[in-house]
Amino acid sequence: MTFNKRSLITLVILAIITVSIYYFFTRRGITYMWHWEKIPEMLFYHGPKSADDPVVRLRMGVLMMGFVLTLKISVASIFFAVIIGTVVGIARLSNEPVTRGLSLSYVELIRNTPLLVQIYIIYFFVGSMLRLSPFVAGTAALSIFAGAYVGEIVRAGIQSIHKGQMEASRSLGMGYAQAMRYIILPQAFKRIIPPLAGQFISLVKDSSLVSVIALADLMFQGQQAVARTYYAFEIYFTVAFLYLVMTFTLSMATQYVERRLAISD
């Protein structure tokens, strides 16, 4: 990935804002004893884990473990959300009234209820019936939630492709599914990269809500660390920064893909 001028400027601005906030707190006479020195060990430390695992080596600290879990659940949820969204997006445009009705109900139901409630329902109700682990339940909730939004984005993308594309494909003898796969969806996905990127970034941030089902993600680990140490500012700043690392990388990656795909335009 080319780290170009624009992303550099963005980073510099973010850094300035962060430093300004920091100075605002320190210079306003707030007597807060900063303990930044405690943060590195929450990311990485060298030493034994516990009495059961006394090997001395480089290990991930709690925040880094949370970071990895958030990364895992985000990647998995994005993957499933795209699959759900593609199916729903196509179903929304079906000629079949039942398919259309079902997909619309799904979208409306999911978009119009809070994610937090959905997470609780999926974990405590569906999850306990099917014996889902918190990770599976959390991934399911996030995928189903984001899938509804992705579905609407995909639908809009498909509708934005000139109908002549479908007609040309069909008149060559391609079936509906073949035309979708080879002609319509590739063009639609290219066009919806910007809104999809926004949706994926939302999903990474929304994933912090799975901390309520005791899933040890970045948010959960942060809360636990604060409860243990009371270094609330340092830890939450770090947590925010780690989320920013993920979302900013995602942003840059999608912009890169967008530029690469623009070649045929």
Binding site: H162, G164, Q165, E167, A168, S169, R170, S171, L172, G173, M174, G175, I183, P186, Q187, K190, S264, D265
Partner: peptide, 19 residues
């Protein structure tokens, strides 16, 4: 689809696949 294979169609706006 079988019938359409036998009938070529050319459109006013070409409808080539831009990607």
């Amino acid at each position: 689809n079988k019938i359409r294979e036998e009938i070529g169609m050319v459109f006013q706006l070409f409808n080539l696949f831009p990607h």
